[in-house]
Design a protein around this nucleic acid. Sequence first.
DNA 1: CAGTATCCCCTTCGATACTG
DNA 2: CAGTATCGAAGGGGATACTG
Lengths: 135, 135
Amino acid sequence: MSRSHTHVSQEVTAQACPLVEVIDHVAGKWSISILVAAAHGPVRFTELERSIEGISRRMLTLNLRRLERDGLLTRTVHPTVPPKVEYNLTSMARELHSYLTGLVEWAERHRGSIAQARTAYDSTAAATQAGQPHP
Amino acid sequence: MSRSHTHVSQEVTAQACPLVEVIDHVAGKWSISILVAAAHGPVRFTELERSIEGISRRMLTLNLRRLERDGLLTRTVHPTVPPKVEYNLTSMARELHSYLTGLVEWAERHRGSIAQARTAYDSTAAATQAGQPHP
DNA sequence: CAGTATCCCCTTCGATACTG
DNA sequence: CAGTATCGAAGGGGATACTG
């Protein structure tokens, strides 16, 4: 996304770091899963990989790096063999955590209603214009 | 190791509406902007288009449809000329709204710290491996 | 164990143009 | 006003293979 017209003069941090981008990083589906999964304490790479259903190693790494860069996660490497890397939430991220769990709990509570809403919407669309992708 | 093993995944994904997908729809950057912008009352298409900085008409339409399909927005067409379409949050979405504003306020509060964290991270990486992230 | 690197598909998104 | 249609560029994301 490129800024089309911006109030360029004053807040440099706002320029370097648009709100929408922060939200995008923090509220992406993998970010949320990672932050929630990492909240209960130091967590290792493979733990995350196993506990987050459907994430690939690549996506996990990418998101981990981005969250670390944004100051939401700390990454601690223990110079042992085999290597051991632990991730923790920063205090900033711990503050975020309650909103995220609120969101996740909301999603759990309403998952059923949403599924129903979709079915209803799809059948309405089918009745209206009789052109649905094959079931 | 199944302590803190979340029971939300396996059998639920068998259903049509995985949790991660719900979260993705509801917490995407445009979805959040739209839901927050639509919270204060009936809002029209062009109002949204103008109030959400950086969104394209296409993205607005796509996200609006998806939110409507998921049962988070109602779309009311007034058969006048010129046409008038109003969007409202459903009660389900109104419940979501507090978490979303919490998130947005968090992002506003910490935008500066995040920008700093990025700068720090980037200079550390540059010092460590003399290789900048791809421009 | 904890990643990187590479290939490649497929979705996302912006730009633009057209319509009821 | 409130969309829909189409195109082409960008990059998200999976599969796989390799490394310190």
